[in-house]
Computed example of a mutant assay.
Amino acid sequence: MCVCHHCREWVAQLGLTDVDQLALVCDTHHPLAGLKDTDWHTIVAGPDHKYPGRILWVPPIHIDPTRKPRINHYFHPHEYWDD
């Protein structure tokens, strides 16, 4: 019940369909992802991040003016309690 979202926009940024550049997203929320400041977009956490290689979701400017990247811990509930 989900689709793959390209972390690097497939056409606009010549993103590849490599498994480390894909994020799972539901059909309902996938249209909310894009390149504009009013869209959600994704990046891959770098090696210095607490969760290297994980997908970071960057909220649209109207939700968070600082556009701080976030991790969806929904399927990793143990991470809520990690120090």
Score class of each variant (00 low, 15 high):
residue 63 I to T: 12
residue 63 I to Y: 11
residue 21 Q to E: 10
residue 36 K to A: 10
residue 43 I to T: 05
residue 22 L to E: 07
residue 21 Q to W: 07
residue 33 A to V: 14
residue 33 A to I: 15
residue 36 K to D: 02
residue 32 L to G: 05
residue 48 D to F: 08
residue 25 V to Q: 08
residue 43 I to M: 01
residue 28 T to Y: 14
residue 53 G to C: 14
residue 27 D to T: 12
residue 77 P to W: 12
residue 66 T to G: 08
residue 44 V to D: 08
residue 56 L to I: 01
residue 39 D to G: 09
residue 49 H to G: 01
residue 58 V to Q: 06
residue 43 I to A: 01
residue 72 N to Y: 08
residue 52 P to R: 11
residue 52 P to N: 13
residue 65 P to L: 05
residue 65 P to R: 08
residue 78 H to E: 09
residue 68 K to Y: 10
residue 26 C to T: 09
residue 28 T to D: 12
residue 45 A to W: 03
residue 23 A to D: 00
residue 53 G to L: 10
residue 31 P to E: 11
residue 30 H to Q: 13
residue 69 P to I: 03
residue 24 L to D: 10
residue 53 G to P: 04
residue 28 T to G: 00
residue 72 N to E: 12
residue 44 V to Q: 09
residue 60 P to M: 04
residue 72 N to H: 14
residue 22 L to N: 11
residue 71 I to T: 14
residue 25 V to N: 01
residue 45 A to K: 05
residue 35 L to D: 08
residue 33 A to R: 14
residue 51 Y to H: 15
residue 77 P to S: 07
residue 76 H to D: 09
residue 65 P to H: 13
residue 26 C to Y: 13
residue 42 T to C: 00
residue 56 L to Q: 08
residue 31 P to H: 13
residue 70 R to S: 12
residue 62 H to W: 03
residue 57 W to S: 01
residue 54 R to T: 06
residue 43 I to K: 05
residue 39 D to F: 03
residue 22 L to I: 14
residue 60 P to R: 12
residue 56 L to T: 00
residue 79 E to C: 02
residue 60 P to C: 09
residue 64 D to L: 01
residue 46 G to N: 12
residue 32 L to V: 08
residue 29 H to M: 04
residue 23 A to I: 05
residue 57 W to R: 06
residue 53 G to M: 06
residue 58 V to E: 02
residue 54 R to G: 00
residue 72 N to D: 15
residue 56 L to A: 06
residue 46 G to R: 07
residue 61 I to N: 08
residue 39 D to R: 11
residue 26 C to I: 04
residue 27 D to S: 08
residue 46 G to K: 12
residue 47 P to Q: 12
residue 52 P to V: 06
residue 63 I to M: 15
residue 34 G to V: 06
residue 23 A to L: 05
residue 74 Y to S: 15
residue 45 A to I: 04
residue 54 R to W: 07
residue 47 P to W: 08
residue 28 T to A: 13
residue 21 Q to R: 15
residue 76 H to Q: 04
residue 63 I to A: 14
residue 48 D to S: 14
residue 75 F to I: 10
residue 31 P to G: 10
